[in-house]
Each structure stands twice: as structure tokens, then as C-alpha cells.
Design a protein around this nucleic acid. Structure first.
Length: 440
RNA sequence: GCGCCUAUCGUCUAUCGGUUAGGACAUAGGGUUUUCAUCCCUAGAAGCGGGGUUCGACUCCCCGUAGGCGCGCCA
């Protein structure tokens, strides 16, 4: 029998990072085992389960590449089936009607009165509980609607789910669930409860800890591959010190018995590092697509940019980008003459005595150059640095700040060549003028 | 309160009774580079406490301690 697993979120408009991690583990397990990964939308809460919320859920799944194998099941459509099951349970004596607190008649499921209830969790081992520590629970509300436990189990039966991989917060529910399975005459599936993801304080990860929803990571410019890789490593380690892996590699190595059972802290620094790794390895065309979109959104994009210049800029920005939302903030000077000057850099590199004269001298030499390329610009500044006894650095720093407004970024000569001689010299001249006016 | 679960560097983790307890992120220092990023090198950094079992415990058992989860006519 091939394994069938499912991701069963309730669509609330945002998909929490902990939730999607469960989806990832289910997906990896299914793909590793050659089984099926199914999606069940638990949309019984009609208020929150709006079409937009469902849309968001599907978008997030697609973004992360969490492909599912059959048409999604919408739980709201299964209500009649749930009720029929409840009636059956009453008929069999596994459940009974009761009017608690005068709210009207509801259906209560009977838990065992003696002995113990236990199951073997693939990641946590055997978990057991004395029957006396369990309690009967409502499966159909007095308003006639099935409760989560009932709906969840009946749907899992109907979908022929073989392995339930979900968050740790469900371990207690599992005692209830396996009893419903048995009462329905169905052998319970295998369970694997994943550790929770917690924040830097070790508390449950929430909105207050920064990005908590998948959409926020996407907006900040994290790559789905990086987020997927990072999340897969929270509670799972393939061994052999493997960390950065392709999706195929993860699929090949994923097993539930290598999952840990203790909570994992979400370390945004490591995610950021990993994202930088993924961005650096991106094919230039892929980077360009996002680069262009971000620059455009920032209002800096110029359609008239020659392709060579455009590609050159992206090539310089790509290796320095850790996440996309750094764009275009870290490279506006490529697109506009009205770039911002970093105050500390100006103070350190442009304010010292003699800088205007130095920049003027650079302009004079640059404009006399027969060719304006990496070799000639570097040779020029190197020679000037030697003549003045300030070294190459003494030339590069002021020129960089004048030309870009910043003291860090791509190599100066790459930058100058991309700007071209006329534009670069105009920038230096403008800086000289502003320094003399005292307007910088 | 009751029940269940968990416990290795600051963080993610490896270790399935015998290791100088390994790797990665982060941090610090150094090298390369015109800066930044990258890259390379180096350093510091861990088995919660107490009992057992064993020739030998991070590893198995028990007791503490701490934390998490659950105890809804929420999901």
C-alpha cells in the first residue's frame, strides 16, 4: 500500500510558518515514499474561510512547490458524511446524545473507562495514557455542526490517509482520534508529531516575532527554495552534515525516523545566510526578473537602459544580495543622478582637505583617457595614488563616495565602467561643486 | 491542578554505550580585495542537576528541575 498523507489547514488568510513546515514534511515524506500528498481545506469556519483566504493558501502552496496529487477536498462539502458517521456512532453505542448546560442536544463520543489508550508515534515513540485520564468529548454541536475531531477523522478515513504528520500540539488529540477510528471499524493511521517552531525566547512563534506568515517571507524577498530548505532543517537532519540541498536531494534523504522531537528555534540569521547562498547561485536571468520587478516597484527602473548595462548592474548586485527587499535600496545610484549620500561616508571621505581638487584632477585624467575601461581607470587611479603618496585606497574611497554616495558596494572600476566616462565625471564635478557650496 | 511530551555550543543539529563530542549559522581574530559581499584560515563556545545500570554513559532507567503542549458545543 503506497502511503497517502495530507496537509489539512484551515484557510485563515495567512499560512503560518509552523503550518507550512508540516506541509513540507508531509510533502517530502510522500515524495520520498512514492506516495500521494493530498490537500484538504478545513473550511468549516465559514466566516474566516473566504475565497481570498483559500486563494492565498493555494498561492503559498504553489510558491513553495508543494504540489498535491488529487483535487483538494473541501471539508465544508463533507458535512452530511460527518453527520451520518455521528449517527452511526450513536447507533453502535460509541456515542450518545446529551443536553449539556441546556444548550440543546449534542452528540458526545465515549472514551474508554478502563485500561489504557496508546499509540506509537514515529517520531516520539510510544505515547500512552490511562483511560481514566481521558474524557468523553463532543463530536456534534447542538447546532448540528460536526466538531473538528469528528470531521478530521472521518475525512482521513475517506481519503484513505495512511500517515498523519502534523504539529506536536496534536499529540493529545490523537488519543481521541484513534478511538474514533476504531469505533468506525478502521485501523488508525501511523502518526508522526513534529516539534513546534519557537521564537528566540523559546516561546511559540507568533506574529510578534517578525515574519510569521509565508507571504511575509515572500514579500521580504526570501526564495521559496531557501525557505523550504531552511524549514526542512528545523526538526530534521539528513545526517552527514548535509545542509544545503536541492529539493531532489531532500526527497531522496527524507525519513521520519530522522526527525527530532524537541522544539526548534527559528533563527532568522541562518535563514538570511541561506537565502544569500541561494540568490548567489541563481541563474542571472532568474535574478534579473526579480531585480527588475523590485527596481520597478521602487520607481527607479528605466526602460531605455541598454541591455548590457542592465545586465551589468544586476551582475554586480546579485552576489551582494541576501534578500530581495534590499533592492533597490542598495543600488539606486545606478538608475538616477539623484542618489542619496551616506552622511558618515561623506564626512569621512569627501570632507577632508583637498578632496575637491583631487576629484577635479581625476576628472581631468579620466576625460583624457582614450578608453574608459577597468584597466585604464584602475591604472589611472593607481598612478595618481602613487604620485600623491596616498595609495590606491586614498583615491578609490573618495571617488566611490562621490560616484555612488556610499562607501560600500561593487568594485569601483566595474561601477565606473558601467556609468561611463561622461556620467561618472559629471557626478564627480557635481560633488566638487556641492562641496565648495557647502551643500553636501 | 491533572495528563502528555521534551532537554548536546548563543542558535539549528550530528552522535544510535567506548569520539580530542563533529558540522553549519552567529560571534571574535587573521588572510585576500579599492570598499562591501564572496572566498580562505584560526579561535572561543555544549552533554540541566542528582541517583542508578554497566568494565565504560551525552547515549539506557529512575527522581528532580526547567520548558512546551493539552485539559472548549475552537481548529
Amino acid at each position: 500500500m503506497t502511503p497517502r498523507v495530507r496537509f489539512a489547514p484551515s484557510p485563515t488568510g495567512n499560512v503560518h510558518i509552523g503550518n507550512i513546515r508540516a506541509a513540507i514534511f508531509n510533502w517530502l515524506y510522500a515524495r520520498h515514499e512514492g506516495g500521494q500528498f493530498l490537500l484538504r481545506v478545513e473550511d468549516t469556519d465559514r466566516e474566516r474561510s473566504t475565497p481570498e483566504a483559500i486563494r492565498t493558501l493555494l498561492d503559498v502552496m504553489a510558491w513553495l512547490g508543494l504540489s498535491y496529487d488529487e483535487e483538494p477536498v473541501y471539508q465544508s462539502a463533507q458535512c452530511a458524511r460527518h453527520m451520518a458517521a455521528a449517527e452511526e456512532l450513536v447507533r453502535q453505542g460509541h456515542a450518545f446524545r446529551e443536553n449539556k448546560e441546556g444548550k440543546g442536544e449534542c452528540i458526545v463520543f465515549r472514551m474508554p473507562r478502563e485500561g489504557r489508550v496508546e499509540y506509537t508515534d514515529i517520531v516520539k515513540g510510544t505515547i500512552r495514557k490511562k483511560a481514566e485520564d481521558t474524557q468523553d468529548f463532543v463530536i456534534v454541536r447542538s447546532d448540528g455542526n460536526p466538531v473538528f475531531h469528528l470531521a478530521n477523522v472521518i475525512d482521513d478515513i475517506d481519503m484513505r490517509i495512511t500517515h498523519i504528520i502534523r504539529g506536536d500540539d496534536h499529540v493529545e488529540n490523537t488519543f481521541k482520534h484513534i478511538q474514533i477510528f476504531r469505533a468506525m471499524g478502521v485501523e488508525p493511521p501511523q502518526y508522526a508529531h513534529l516539534p513546534m517552531i519557537v521564537n528566540a525566547m523559546g516561546k511559540p512563534y507568533s506574529k510578534r516575532d517578525g515574519a510569521a506568515f509565508v507571504g511575509e517571507f515572500r514579500d521580504q524577498g526570501f526564495l521559496p527554495e531557501a525557505l523550504f530548505n531552511f524549514l526542512a532543517l528545523l526538526g530534521w537532519a539528513p545526517g552527514e552534515d548535509r545542509e544545503q540541498m536541492t529539493r531532489d536531494e531532500m526527497v531522496a534523504m527524507f525519513t521520519l525516523d530522522r526527525c527530532k522531537s524537541s522544539a526548534a528555534r527559528f533563527d532568522i540569521k541562518k535563514l538570511t545566510w541561506m537565502n544569500g547562498e541561494y540568490i548567489r547561485r541563481l541563474p542571472p536571468a532568474d535574478f534579473m526578473a526579480e531585480f527588475k520587478a523590485r527596481v520597478k516597484a521602487g520607481g527607479y527602473w528605466r526602460e531605455d537602459l541598454p541591455p548590457a548595462e542592465r545586465d551589468g548592474i544586476a551582475a554586480l548586485v546579485q552576489p551582494r544580495t541576501k534578500f530581495y527587499s534590499e533592492i533597490p535600496g542598495n543600488c539606486t545610484y545606478f538608475f538616477t543622478e539623484d542618489y542619496a549620500f551616506d552622511a558618515r561616508s561623506v564626512e569621512k571621505r569627501l570632507k577632508p582637505e583637498g578632496v575637491p581638487e583631487l576629484l577635479e584632477a581625476v576628472v581631468a585624467r579620466f576625460e583624457a583617457l582614450p578608453a574608459f575601461d577597468h584597466a585604464t581607470t584602475e591604472a589611472t587611479l593607481r598612478a595618481m595614488g602613487d604620485e600623491r603618496g596616498v595609495g590606491l585606497g586614498g583615491m578609490v574611497h573618495p571617488v566611490r563616495v562621490a560616484a555612488s554616495g556610499l562607501s560600500d558596494g561593487p568594485g569601483l572600476f566595474e561601477l565606473l565602467v558601467l556609468l561611463g566616462c561622461p556620467r561618472a565625471c559629471a557626478r564627480l564635478r557635481r560633488v566638487v561643486a556641492r562641496l565648495r557650496e557647502g551643500t553636501l
